[in-house]
């Protein structure tokens, strides 16, 4: 359980980081929080020959509001997201999802951007990025800055649309007006573990009617799964106060469960994951309405 040997470099600026990535993109790996990378290195499942530690690069951490967008720096720690202020639906959603990310000593180090770049389809930030159609801002020396929509960003488990010489710099999320009802629910057998299935939802509700619906599911595919069927079921419908037991929630849950094609593994077989999609979708919708 000791990593194989690597060269360690610690750039002190973004330009220096991009230069380093440019020199040797295939063999380099960016080290931010390290909470997923280092375990894989300890198991020798990952063996980069060069680690580029971006923890001392200024300007990569923190959040800022730009008009109707919230921009989250790539090295913003999970704990900083959990401690974010704001009573708007987006801030509430981010805080509630952050509370599910590992445990406190993981959240003090692990980063928002690192989690996205790791592209684990069950992880909280990947789901939320996909739910809200976030924009990933990536940068390289060769091609400068470019933006990748979340829909195109996650290619597979541990694989994103970023080129090896690119760094995820920041992520831009749409701020949500008060008409939005967001929720996040996940099921893990043990506190703090990766979810077997996680569901996050965002409904825009006007005069009691759903005008816009987004449903994103983790643990059922290689990438975060947007359930078009569930979204279509919800849009245009009137929300009951007791959504958890409402026919609408049941219909949305059934739509999502029929649409997904989950894998079977030691943590749960496909029928069980479908059951969890039903349960977590219902619970996520209920959270939104309870607010």
């Amino acid at each position: 359980m000791k990593p194989s040997s690597f060269e360690y470099v610690r750039p002190e600026s973004l330009a220096e980081t991009l230069d380093l990535l440019h020199q040797d993109p295939e063999e380099s790996k960016v080290l931010a929080g390290g909470q997923s990378l280092v375990p894989m290195m300890n198991f020798r499942l990952a063996r980069p020959s060069r680690l580029i530690d971006i923890n001392r690069v200024p300007g990569l951490a923190g959040t800022r509001v730009e008009g109707d967008r919230l921009v989250i720096g790539t090295r913003t720690r999970h704990l900083a997201v959990q401690n974010m202020s704001g009573a708007d639906p987006l801030a509430r959603l981010l805080r509630s999802a952050a509370a599910h990310v590992g445990h406190l000593p993981i959240r003090t180090r692990g980063t928002f951007g690192g989690s996205l770049a790791h592209s684990d389809a069950a992880s909280e930030w990947c789901l939320i990025a996909r739910l809200l159609d976030a924009t990933m801002v990536v940068e390289s020396r060769a091609r400068g800055r470019r933006e990748i929509p979340a829909a195109d960003f996650f290619l597979s488990i541990f694989t994103t649309a970023m080129e090896p010489d690119e760094l995820l710099v920041e992520v831009s999320l749409p701020r949500l007006g008060d008409e939005h009802r967001t929720g996040f629910a996940e099921f893990a057998r043990r506190a703090g573990d990766f979810a077997i299935v996680a569901v996050t939802t965002d409904l825009a509700v006007e005069k009691g009617v759903v005008t816009h619906a987004r449903v994103c599911i983790g643990g059922v595919a290689d990438t975060p799964f947007r359930s078009g069927a569930a979204e279509a079921t919800l849009v245009g419908q009137r929300l009951d106060d007791d959504i958890a037991t409402s026919p609408l929630a049941r219909a949305a849950a059934e739509a999502a469960a029929s649409e997904v094609d989950p894998p079977s593994d030691a943590h749960g077989d496909a029928p069980y994951r479908r059951d969890l999609v039903r349960a977590m979708l219902t619970s996520s919708l209920a959270q939104g309405v309870a607010r």
Partner: peptide
């Protein structure tokens, strides 16, 4: 502890073998 059909142990980390925490 779970073995697969070839006799490989599948549960070789604390993410697969689940000792409960204080929550459980």
């Amino acid at each position: 502890l779970i073995y697969d059909d070839a006799g490989n142990l599948v549960t070789t980390s604390l993410m697969d073998f689940l000792p409960p925490t204080m929550q459980e």
